[in-house]
Simulated assay, not measured.
Amino acid sequence: MITFAESQLVAWLSPLLWPFLRVLAVFSVAPLFSMRAVPARARIGLAFFVALSAQAVLADQPVVALNGPGALGAVAQQVAVGLAIGFAVRLVFAAVEMAGEVIGLQMGLNFAAFFDPTSNAQVSAVARFYGYLSMLLFVVINGHLMVLMAVVESFQRFPTDGNFLQALAQMRLYEMGGALFTSALWMALPMIALLLFVNLTLGIISRVAPQMNIYAVGFPVTLSVGLLGIAATLPMLEQPVLKLFQQAFDTLGIQF
């Protein structure tokens, strides 16, 4: 009769269970993986497959007993680190969408808002367009692979038997808040300058020709120039997004 000791079962399950929990936490928050179109069973199966495939790289991970005093802390740490990685990636998309909000405000298109079921909030058309564009760019630049690499590399900085509170202090997620507004403003700055010039021009025209109805002329002109400006500045969106991804992973202390 074949028998297994408890220590053997722990040695087999521990290297697979903790990476599985961390990857599953990332998939529950990170963009593209956390979409409602992705079933929960698919996320669980993909997380298990990623954890199983990473065993060759995570061969030297410490073994944490499932019924020991450190098991609860290990579970909390895996979930916290996974959620932090997914949240940092989501902040990149939030910065791009905020840039779209600012551009839409300057164009006068913020009244064209609709309910977004994915975020359960009112989102303007320009912000939603930038959000979809950032999602496509995320796939094109292999951002999903970068997220998986970040999860695997996070075990070097945050091992499974590490201190939970110390891991939270090392993540420095609060720095991403300031970077969110700064990056959104920098991405929207060319459009802000262009539309400001258009508004100044329309203001001068209204003073030179008062008989012209500037309200009837200004909106089509601003909208047309804004759409042309968006088409001209979209090819320049790749580098800021890549820099934001790198900054997000650097804030977490994850190096590729």
Rank of each mutant, 00 (worst) to 15 (best):
207 R>I: 14
235 P>G: 09
53 S>N: 06
65 A>Q: 11
127 A>P: 03
242 L>W: 04
110 N>R: 06
162 G>D: 13
14 S>W: 02
171 M>E: 04
139 V>Y: 10
168 L>C: 10
242 L>M: 13
186 W>I: 12
148 L>V: 15
63 V>G: 03
107 M>H: 04
166 Q>H: 07
59 A>M: 09
142 N>L: 12
95 A>G: 07
144 H>N: 08
247 Q>H: 11
29 V>H: 03
217 V>F: 11
117 P>C: 08
115 F>C: 01
243 K>L: 11
246 Q>Y: 07
191 M>Y: 06
89 V>W: 04
233 T>R: 02
194 L>S: 04
61 Q>V: 10
188 A>P: 05
138 F>Q: 02
42 A>F: 12
206 S>A: 15
96 V>R: 01
189 L>N: 06
122 Q>R: 12
172 R>C: 05
111 F>S: 05
41 R>V: 14
104 G>T: 01
93 F>D: 00
161 D>I: 05
84 A>R: 03
39 P>Q: 09
196 L>T: 15
217 V>S: 03
171 M>Q: 12
80 A>I: 09
231 A>E: 09
85 I>D: 03
88 A>T: 00
237 L>K: 06
61 Q>K: 11
243 K>C: 01
55 Q>L: 09
63 V>E: 05
153 E>C: 08
74 A>G: 10
22 R>I: 00
196 L>Y: 07
83 L>V: 14
247 Q>W: 09
161 D>C: 02
47 A>Q: 10
223 L>I: 15
7 S>N: 01
135 M>L: 14
132 Y>S: 07
181 F>A: 11
73 G>C: 00
176 M>R: 02
150 A>H: 03
28 S>D: 07
30 A>Y: 06
205 I>D: 02
13 L>C: 07
199 N>Q: 15
36 R>Y: 08
191 M>T: 14
17 L>P: 02
17 L>I: 14
220 P>Y: 02
255 Q>H: 15
236 M>T: 09
85 I>V: 13
170 Q>K: 12
66 L>V: 14
129 F>P: 02
237 L>P: 03
172 R>Y: 05
113 A>W: 00
96 V>I: 13
19 P>M: 03
138 F>M: 12
128 R>W: 02
79 V>L: 13
214 I>R: 01
95 A>W: 08
245 F>H: 15
51 A>R: 01
124 S>W: 00
197 F>Q: 06
246 Q>W: 04
149 M>A: 11
243 K>Y: 07
74 A>Y: 01
170 Q>P: 00
213 N>R: 10
57 V>N: 10
150 A>P: 05
70 G>T: 07
208 V>I: 15
178 G>A: 08
14 S>V: 04
24 L>Q: 10
214 I>G: 00
147 V>F: 03
162 G>K: 07
45 G>D: 01
143 G>L: 11
189 L>A: 13
100 G>S: 04
204 I>M: 15
22 R>Q: 08
76 A>N: 10
194 L>R: 04
238 E>V: 15
238 E>W: 12
108 G>K: 05
